[in-house]
């Protein structure tokens, strides 16, 4: 709900269609294109022509699925290509929407703490989102932004990779967690819940007090 609050604070009229489910990325990433395509068509049927100007999601990887993979790496039937084209141009990741579309540097938020940003791979390399979250965080009252080393290195999640190659995934997450701990931050944030769930899982296992928070919860939250 914090994303909704931030968007409404900018004056946007936010709507939510309860028929939506999943963009199909998990199946796509694992190679199951038929299953993924079914979900993609469901997604396109709901969002194309729904009367809204923009589609905003608090997830770089879901946005990547729609914006980058629909119709390119995931083949769609002829009659859906135009739909996909229209939807693709309307879908935006949350921080990129605020900064690149609305031109906002600040959303008038307040948060007390030392915060570091983890760059999620899809957001960083498919959507080129790097500065947007940092810009918004720098303008949060009371927030101190610190950079970890290797912020742009993968956290090791990778969807089914985390289970198929759990030991390699774990080794990658360990390095990420060590970078976070070295940064001295008490909160790690990012634009993707899945990476944060992974990182948080190991921080908790280690008994660390460092918290993982989605950037929407910092920008729209209660302040600490």
């Amino acid at each position: 709900m914090n994303m909704v609050r931030v968007l409404e604070r900018t004056g946007a009229d936010v709507r939510y269609d309860a028929k939506q489910t999943c963009c199909g990325q998990p199946a796509f990433n694992t190679g199951y294109h038929d299953e993924s395509r079914d979900m993609a068509l469901h997604f396109l049927d709901i969002f194309d022509g729904d009367g809204s100007d923009y589609i905003v999601a608090p997830s770089g990887s879901c946005v990547t699925m729609v914006k980058v993979f629909y119709g390119s790496l995931l083949e769609l039937p002829e009659e859906y290509r135009e739909k996909a084209e229209r939807v693709r141009s309307r879908v935006h990741e949350f921080t990129s929407f605020l900064v690149d579309v609305l031109g906002k540097n600040s959303v008038g938020a307040e948060f007390h703490g030392r915060v570091t940003v983890h760059d999620s791979c899809h957001a960083l390399r498919e959507l080129r989102i790097r500065e947007q979250p940092r810009l918004l965080l720098r303008n949060v009252k009371g927030l101190e932004l610190v950079e970890m080393d290797a912020a742009d290195v993968c956290c090791g999640f990778g969807g089914t990779f985390a289970v198929k190659h759990a030991s390699v995934s774990t080794a990658m997450t360990e390095e990420k967690v060590e970078s976070i701990l070295r940064s001295g931050a008490d909160v790690v944030t990012g634009v993707d819940s899945s990476c944060l769930m992974n990182i948080s899982g190991m921080l908790k296992r280690r008994g660390s007090a460092v918290r993982c928070m989605h950037i929407a919860d910092i920008l729209g939250g209660s302040g600490s």
Binding site: C121, V153, G158, F161, K164, H165, V168
Partner: peptide, 10 residues
């Protein structure tokens, strides 16, 4: 499948 698909390679 032995990749997190982070894309640093590309």
């Amino acid at each position: 499948f032995a990749s997190s698909l982070c894309g640093a390679c590309a």
